[in-house]
Design a binder for these strands. Structure first.
Length: 648
DNA sequence: CAATAGAGCGCT
DNA sequence: AAAGCGCTCTATTG
């Protein structure tokens, strides 16, 4: 039977293209298969669906599984425990003959490279995935991303297509998560699913395209749409990594881990799982007379705190074994070894095995052709910050001897350099900008480091007489402002006693009254709006209904969050994104933007273009078009390095 | 057996 | 009473 919405031949395909080309906008969606299904640079597109006024179709291009089972057999397999079991394997009829990707993408080229509006949900994924069929060129602008549009309207809800469709139309159309593994589902199921994805993307565009404008969010939406180009740059380029460096480090870490493990077992007198916080707590906190080390617990776990608040009985398992809790006992030989073990285990598991993969654990290697194609999510954080995953390139170690060795594996290819640029104190700059006066503001205008400035006022000395210790306290105090930290955190950070921290915080409040007044103002202003929101420098909204919670703890948390969101969202949400959009326009073709780490940008470039790239970064990050938004001078640090670890 | 929660930890 | 993330490992739950 011919299903009119499934395109299986060239006549139908050309009729579809002809129809779509009558209009100025269309939606499309892709379904992809392994290897690297979730990586646009590497995956294979096996379905593309299109929707426009009065029409939606789906085009399969190599889906194998048909609709009917035509046989079955029993197949033996080994369980992880080494037992042989049998499972039933079904044989499916083949799917109907389909068009080849080359035919489909050739026919779609006039649409994809026209000035028609391309509407997607998660545009970077779809645009990036089909770029490989056009010599690496993503479809041409303009784009509209209904996911960005949804998130900007409400960052607190679930914004996946399924969730929005269910909430708006009451239609639940994907109970099985078909898109997660299309090749395992039968032909008709995927056809229907892919068709509905495009159709609903189209309908949501029609329904909600103007919703952002109604909330004063057009500017941010336009910025986020421009940012799509920068996402495509990063995810398609990938970050160059030397897998051999990681492999060597892995061997070294393994040797040490084996040593720590043996020593700990010997000293404790028995074996236990060193990765289990439950077992560690038993060993460390059980009294000596009962066979434990009898250490005095320093802190509770999150769950332990809850139990304590409810007045429930605590067990050893409610006491934390994290590094902070163990530190006071670091003179104990077992704890000393344990801290080393925990550190190296983290590095090995997350940053060596996690990247190189492990066939035994069925983990893939993330380095392909010398590059890691992570996924960057432009609205990954509710503040508007970027997030990064698979792998997370924003938490590659930077401190410590071993950590630096890991970061050293991220390096320029031969004949190339990394140009690394980061904003100086961007969050405090933004804070001073918003306040528009006071010591911090004046200090920035005089080119004085904000922590030094704070120290001078809090300790009553001149800027020249600020010591390292004073600056460290001041750093903690500034940290406390932006994050809403309390005296305990400040004391911990600055390495001073609790009463001293309290005293310094009181002095800070006296010397920087405008900071506290501003903070209170932001919170009250937000609380007075119907949806309890504040706005960032470019107008992005952060809504925190808990500002009106009767629960004091929740309310206080919301107050910290909303103030932090205004600062964090402006600095590492809005400004870095604007700088990235500006940068893309200025970079020479041969240079590649490969990463952003909140206030830092990393560009990979042929050596001969280094001066050009440095100038482009300066102009993008500090030039008039961005500086005029901020009443405080912006600054940046730039390094030209071979290895990422060498950037200052 | 797979999915989820909790602890813990890497980064800005 | 420390903001925002994502990943790994264990232990528990369905």
């Amino acid at each position: 039977m011919r299903v009119p919405y499934i395109v299986l031949d060239t006549d139908h395909l050309h009729a579809v293209v002809e129809y779509v080309s009558r209009f100025g906008a269309f939606a499309f969606d892709t379904e992809t298969t392994p290897p690297y299904r979730a990586v646009p640079a590497l995956n294979t597109v096996t379905w593309i669906s299109l929707a426009t006024y009065g029409m939606a179709v789906v085009i399969p291009m190599g889906h194998e599984k048909g609709d009917k089972v035509i046989g079955s057999r029993k197949e033996p397999y080994l369980t992880p425990t080494g037992l042989t079991r049998h499972r039933t394997v079904y044989e499916w009829e083949p799917a109907p003959p389909q068009l080849r990707p080359s035919q489909v993408f050739e026919a779609l080229e006039p649409l994809m490279f026209s000035d028609r509006l391309k509407i997607c949900r998660n545009a970077p994924f779809d645009l990036g995935s089909i770029a490989k069929y056009y010599d690496g060129r993503p479809p041409a602008k303009p784009y509209f991303d209904t996911f960005l549009n949804s998130v900007l309207q409400d960052e607190n809800r679930l914004n996946g297509l399924k969730h929005r469709v269910k909430s708006i139309y009451g239609h639940i159309y994907d109970k099985e998560d078909v898109g997660k593994k299309v090749e395992t589902h039968c032909f008709s199921t995927v056809a229907r699913y892919a068709y509905l994805d495009a159709k609903y993307t189209w309908l949501l565009w029609k329904r909600e395209r103007d919703a952002c404008a109604a909330e004063g969010l057009s500017g941010v939406l336009a910025l986020e749409h421009d940012v799509i180009d920068t996402v495509l740059e990063m995810i398609l380029n990938g970050a160059p990594v030397d897998g051999d460096v990681l492999a060597d480090l892995g061997v070294q870490l393994d040797e040490r881990l084996v040593h720590y493990e043996a020593e700990i077992y010997r000293l404790v007198g028995r074996q236990f799982n060193l990765n289990s916080s439950k077992q560690k707590a038993e060993v460390f906190y059980t009294p000596k007379k009962d066979g434990g080390l009898g250490l005095k617990p320093a802190a509770l776990t999150k769950g332990g705190k809850k139990k304590w608040a409810k007045g429930e009985e605590l067990t050893v398992h409610d006491f934390s074994t994290d590094a902070d809790a163990l530190k006071p006992h670091s003179d104990h030989p077992v704890i000393k070894l344990m801290l080393d073990y925990q550190r190296d285990q983290k590095l090995k598991g997350t940053y060596v095995t996690g990247i190189l993969g492990d066939p035994e654990q069925d983990k893939p290697c993330l380095i392909v052709n010398g590059r890691i194609h992570g996924s960057f999510k432009q609205v990954g954080a509710r503040t508007g910050r970027w997030s990064s995953a698979e792998p997370n390139l924003q938490n590659i170690p930077s401190r410590g001897e071993e950590g630096k060795k890991i970061r050293a594996a991220y390096r320029a290819e031969p004949g190339y350099k990394l140009v690394v640029a980061d904003y100086g104190q961007i969050e405090l700059v933004v804070l001073a900008h918003f306040i528009g006066q006071g010591a911090l503001f004046d200090g920035f205008h005089k080119g004085i480091d904000p922590h030094t400035m704070t120290a001078a006022l809090v300790f009553g000395v001149s800027v020249e007489d600020v010591t390292k210790e004073m600056r460290s306290v001041a750093k903690g105090l500034n940290f406390a402002i932006v994050y809403g930290a309390g005296p305990r955190t400040v004391a911990e950070m600055a390495g001073v006693r609790l009463d001293e921290a309290k005293k310094h915080m009181a002095t800070h409040r006296k010397m920087f009254p405008e900071v506290y007044a501003y903070k209170a103002y932001v919170i009250e202003e937000a609380r007075a709006t119907p949806d309890c929101h504040t706005r960032t420098i470019l107008g992005r909204k952060r809504r925190l209904p808990d500002l009106r919670s009767r629960d004091e703890e929740k309310r206080a948390a919301a107050e910290r969050q909303i103030f932090n969101a205004k600062i964090q969202g402006s600095a590492t949400g809005d400004l870095i994104k604007l700088a990235m959009v500006r940068l893309i326009a200025l970079l020479p073709d041969e240079a590649e933007l490969i990463m952003t780490v909140h206030d830092e940008l990393v560009v990979h470039t042929p050596e001969e273009h280094v001066p050009l790239v440095e100038a482009a970064l300066r102009e993008a990050m500090l030039g008039d078009g961005i500086q005029r938004l901020v009443r405080v001078p912006l600054t940046s640090d730039q390094s030209v390095v071979d290895r990422w670890s060498d950037a200052k």
